[in-house]
Write a protein that binds this DNA or RNA. Structure first.
Lengths: 355, 355
DNA sequence: TCTTGTTTTGCAAACGTTTGCAGAGAAAAG
DNA sequence: CTTTTCTCTGCAAACGTTTGCAAAACAAGA
């Protein structure tokens, strides 16, 4: 009828003051237990639910956080938003979700628009320039995931140690020539993985060829399959599982057997068991990262920005079915032969603050 | 310093009334253009952003909608939330996302908790009982997707026509014994697809065996691979692409070739191009459904509930690489032979209001 | 019975907007 | 130069909470 009942209506009905009703919910220990019970019964009966907006206006606390991701359709993100949402829910917070569509401008707009109405923001895999990020972090409560800009609050899923394990493992299997197939070039994770591969290889006399499946899609990776197979490498490390999966699709189409002809290791463990053979990959604790970020936002609700921090969760190598010993004869596969040693295509090796 | 500037502060600074400032944003045509410009400049300079909570409190419009899904990690949902979010954003609405974890109680709680703070709710693939749904629909503005309860506002992705096409196609290829591998039993889509297969088969002398990959996961489906292969069917229609994918995993492990030994057709077109061979499937317009639901919520903002409606978007069969002619000799595959004609396992054929 | 102290409740202001109503000018009409 | 009509702006109340402060009620100590 008259819409949802309000605290004032409840109070009138019970012949008590609105403030008392309010306190029955927010600070019941200040009230006589019987009063609390009375109010609760009436509230229950009337179907009263508190108005978040009024509360937010009064307390200055929004009761919500914002979560911004580049592309929710990428399988890396759903588990993350799930974890964030669950944990936020436990803390009594709702979560606004927004998708930037990989567009930095959209991301920037989204941040400005959401920031004022929430307790804080979680920005995952930001595509913004470092300078802008620092600027934002100065005036907004925002936690970044997988973006490493100094003096911001950031939680990072670090795979470099796991990548080193992966490379030593490959090396023990006899692999000497490996490929790294990168993803979105602006991605911090991509840069990080790229250099992890480079550094280790340099130190251990492995020869690495770089490829880039630029938008990071299955199709892009699949299209790269032939070139990778023909490049003479015997193992490949992919930026993430969807690229690994795409490569495997390309390999299968080209008749290249994994792991007999080529070993492949993915990253993120998003699809691992859904490929055949099951994908060896680097598992990464997105849930922990998400929860850490949520927790950070829920603390110190007063402050206008988060104090800088660099939280790291390390990934771990998990071996499944796509890695094996190098073929007895490591002679090139029978594909249209390219240049003997194709000039190793280097894809941006920048090691700035957000590498 | 003093936090974000407010309308009142802006007004004071400019020596005008708060209402004028407010109108400069909400009804600029009521004001002298110069005044509007003046206010806008000052707002820009001061970094003013309107406070959504205050606005919501004053207008009674929340400026946000809620989106509730059973499991964001299931690849069916991300494109849907993406479409919903994009369209909502165009309409100036934010979106709250929540995940019920397939738990009806959690879903119920979530609905009650979110409903009061939003313009309306979109509930996808609800696992709630029909009676409860009707009850909710009576008092809340909620649009359901893929749940068919009379007198509610619901948009349905109807695949039955496409399933008929799929079956006639299989039939033309010579298939006579097919399997339907179902997903979550409470799912409307599952019941609908189940009966579509049944009805058509009955009418066209196809023999259908039912299986259920109950929680609907890749693993469950993969584990079912052997039984399906051994059941003597020559084609299978899966509830969705992840089940189809799981089955293909199982088949691959068992040495069963797709499509030579067995044809498979998925549903939803969520992974289609990422399998090898590429999965034949039924494409479904989740984006349209999501947009329709958002639009419904944004209309008639005054009303306390949505008027009943049944919007249908039909799926279409898309043939890729997993369907082929039945094998010349349709003799049973060489797996441990089960009973000759395993009693067709029937999985819940209920055709109630939410079938 | 009168203090004094404690617990429980009420009053009223505040949070930042929006909006109906009315007042002030300015323009148009007489 | 009035009167009327319009355009523009201001006043103040309202939205539903929370919360500092003070009043009231009660209990305890004297």
């Amino acid at each position: 009828m008259t819409g949802r009942p309000t605290i004032t209506q409840l109070a009138a009905e019970l012949g008590i003051a609105p403030s008392t009703v309010s306190r029955a919910f927010t600070r019941p220990n200040l009230l006589k237990p019987e009063t609390v019970a009375l109010v609760q019964k009436a509230a229950e009966a009337a179907g009263y639910v508190p108005n978040h907006h009024a509360r937010a206006l009064s307390t200055g606390r929004a009761g919500a956080i914002g979560l911004i991701v580049p592309d929710i359709a990428n399988p890396f993100f759903p588990p993350l938003v799930r974890a964030a949402q669950n944990y936020a829910s436990d803390l009594g917070l709702s979560v606004f979700l927004a998708d930037t569509d990989e567009d930095p401008n959209r991301e920037d707009r989204l941040i400005s628009r959401m920031a004022p109405q929430v307790e804080g923001l979680i920005v995952v895999s930001s595509r913004l320039a470092s300078a802008r990020i620092r600027q934002i972090a100065d005036s907004q409560r925002v936690a970044f995931i997988n973006r490493d800009v100094p003096e911001t609050y950031r939680v990072l899923l670090d795979t470099s140690a796991a990548i080193r394990s992966a490379l030593t493992h490959l090396s023990e299997l006899g692999h000497r020539r490996i490929a790294y197939v990168g993803g979105p070039p602006q991605s911090w994770a991509n840069k990080q993985r790229h250099s992890a591969v480079d550094n280790f290889s340099k130190a251990h006399a492995l020869e690495v060829t770089h490829f880039s499946a630029d938008p990071g899609t299955y199709e892009a990776a699949k299209a790269l399959g032939d070139s990778v197979a023909a490049s003479g490498v015997t193992a490949v490390i992919a930026f993430d599982d969807v690229i690994a999966h795409g490569l495997m699709g390309g390999f299968a189409a080209a008749g290249v057997d994994v792991p007999k002809d080529l070993s492949v290791i993915g990253c993120d463990d998003t699809l691992a068991t859904t490929t055949f053979p099951a994908l060896s990959t680097i598992a990464v604790n997105v849930g922990a990262a998400a929860r850490r970020a949520v927790a950070a936002l829920s603390e110190n609700p007063g402050s206008t920005s988060l104090t800088g921090a660099r939280i790291i969760f390390e990934g771990t190598l998990v071996l499944r079915g796509t890695t094996g010993a190098v073929r007895p004869t490591s002679s090139p596969l029978t594909l249209e032969p390219e240049l003997d040693h194709p000039a190793t295509r280097r894809v941006q090796t920048g090691r700035g603050s957000d590498s």
